[in-house]
Amino acid sequence: MLNFILSRMARAVMTLVMVMSFAFIVMRLSGDPATILLGPDAPQDAIDAFRARWGLDDPLWKQYLAYIAQIFTFDFGISMRDQMPALDIVLERIPATLAITLPAMILKLGIGIPAGVYAALHRESIADRGVITLSIFGFTIPSFVLALVLVLIFSVQLGWLPSGGQDSWQHAILPIVTLSVGGIGIMARFSRSAMIEVLGQPYIRTAMAKGLSWRDVVWKHALPNASVPIVTLVGFMVGALIAGAAVVESIFSWPGVGRLIVSSVANRDLAVVQCLLLVIASSMVAANLLVDIAYGLLDPRLRSKRSAH
């Protein structure tokens, strides 16, 4: 197991270097930060000074090496815009984002999985059809549309909840709901099909033929098997905890990581964008690693495949 984790961590570092290199290339190709930050009418000597200050005049390979070296020393440089360390700017935003993505995640799992499992156990019932219909609705409606509808109803019409900002816990409700609806739908659909798949397996018939009650068949045999594929999806959701709320944060003026992504990309604030990318990529890689470890705990077949390596 330890060997496995170490090799996966080495792979994770490789992944991160690749992500960061890609980010470097895209950012350098997509426009000159100097003109964007200083404006198109800025005098030439101001632009030259800016470029020199941020090393933008160096050859690309030199910039790249400096950039990689910085990453490995956890030095992400200074924001071109705010003159603060990029890492601080990014870290400062994380709690606000987690304040809405974590509750949303709990709703996704807490509603989506039971709904999907219930639907699978009562296949073709009214409840099942209801779950299918609602979940299709949930994951097809774009979040900005949903957000606008929710604001229209709860802020404009009823006046119950604020439509933007971060002053009280009430401000978090609409962003959380908007964020979770799609995920609940996906989770319900996925749990339903995972459960249906498992219920059709021969070992479920064995468990029934043994004389177990249906309840025990479901809890002791079906659910432990269905949890293996469900964990994959949970992993994706964990990976999106930090970066997955950009649209919702922008709509509700929620000062989280997502909004920082939008503004720093628009401003070509290289240091901040790069730091954001690394933080986001790391969180996804970490989520992946967790999923792999969870797989091993849930499924002995994968565990022994690993130790054979």
């Binding site: 021969p202 070992y203 064995t206 468990a207 432990p224 098997n225 293996v228 077949r301």
Partner: peptide
């Protein structure tokens, strides 16, 4: 049953 390998619960 016919297929013994898949008739046992793989995670137990």
């Amino acid at each position: 049953f016919q297929d013994p390998s898949s008739s046992l619960n793989p995670v137990q």
